[in-house]
Design a protein around this nucleic acid. Structure first.
Length: 259
DNA sequence: ATGTCACCTGCGAGGTGA
């Protein structure tokens, strides 16, 4: 079963690109972030079945869509832990597979910049809430994946020039420590379980010729529960769409699970 | 590099977010 994550940076601007990619990559489940659309505005017909978020504020900003060829047994919208948080950044679905169930969590973790604004503590507290949810899910002892745009550069090997990012919310020690403590719960970084080469990127800024210079960062991740990690076959970054016309600044990451 | 892109309001260009 192929599960993909991709920050598409706007479904309206990216519709043709996304359809082209879906036709060739053909994932069973797709996690999209920054759809910048409410449910009604999302073109469901691009996938066989769908569920998409979300609460308010998704119209202009944020927004995550969870799409599946397998019908969902259950869909949960919104990250628990703060009833005042109306940003559309979290959706979770459960599907039945021959070996049992697979739960897919699709996240768009807050960017957090600038670090001297209230956006940075919001990011860190969001990560704390995510950790609490993951702890809860781990007690189910089932295969699950937390996929999405984490806005976290895990290590210096995941950025073209660490020195240029020291004061960025994506690379701050507080951010990386939170990510590490998430992994320490027992999750596996699917890409790193399959590849150990440095400088494998999922995002290149639109500015300053970042793509042409390969000035990228790795911030889109698929983290696996132990039961899912046991079923991991492969995980790869598909950097090709970054070179297409009208690209997103992120590229898809696709993993294969034997279910 | 103050470097680019997308979406909103609302009809033109500026604000916001990344």
């Amino acid at each position: 079963m192929k599960i993909a994550t991709w920050n598409i940076n706007g479904i309206k601007a990216r519709l043709e690109t996304v359809k082209t990619w879906l036709a060739s990559a053909s994932p069973d489940i797709a996690c999209f972030q920054e759809i910048k659309s409410i449910d009604e505005g999302f073109p469901a017909e691009i996938f066989e079945a769908r569920a998409s978020t979300s609460p308010s504020m998704a119209r202009r900003f944020n927004g995550v869509a969870l799409l599946s060829k397998i019908p969902f047994d259950e869909v949960i919208r919104g990250l628990p832990g703060d009833d005042d948080d109306v940003q559309a950044r979290y959706i979770e679905g459960v599907v039945s597979v021959p070996s049992g169930v697979v739960r897919v969590v699709n996240i768009y973790l807050p960017n957090g910049n600038p670090i001297d604004s209230d956006k940075f503590p919001y990011k860190l507290s969001w990560m704390e809430r995510l950790k609490a949810r993951v702890k809860e899910l781990l007690t189910y002892e089932e295969p699950f994946v937390v996929a999405g745009d984490y806005n976290v550069i895990p290590t210096p090997e995941d950025v073209y020039d660490p020195a240029a990012w020291v004061n960025d919310a994506l690379f701050r020690p507080e951010t990386r420590a939170q990510f590490q403590s998430l992994l320490n719960l027992g999750l596996t970084d699917a890409f790193r379980a399959c590849h150990d080469e440095p400088h494998q990127f999922t995002f290149w800024d639109y500015q300053a010729g970042a793509w042409q210079k390969n000035h990228g960062i790795r911030i889109d991740h698929l983290l696996l529960s132990p039961q899912a990690a046991d079923k991991l076959v492969s995980c790869d970054i598909d950097s090709e769409p970054r070179g297409w016309e009208k690209p997103s600044d992120h590229v898809p990451v696709v993993m294969d699970l034997s279910v």
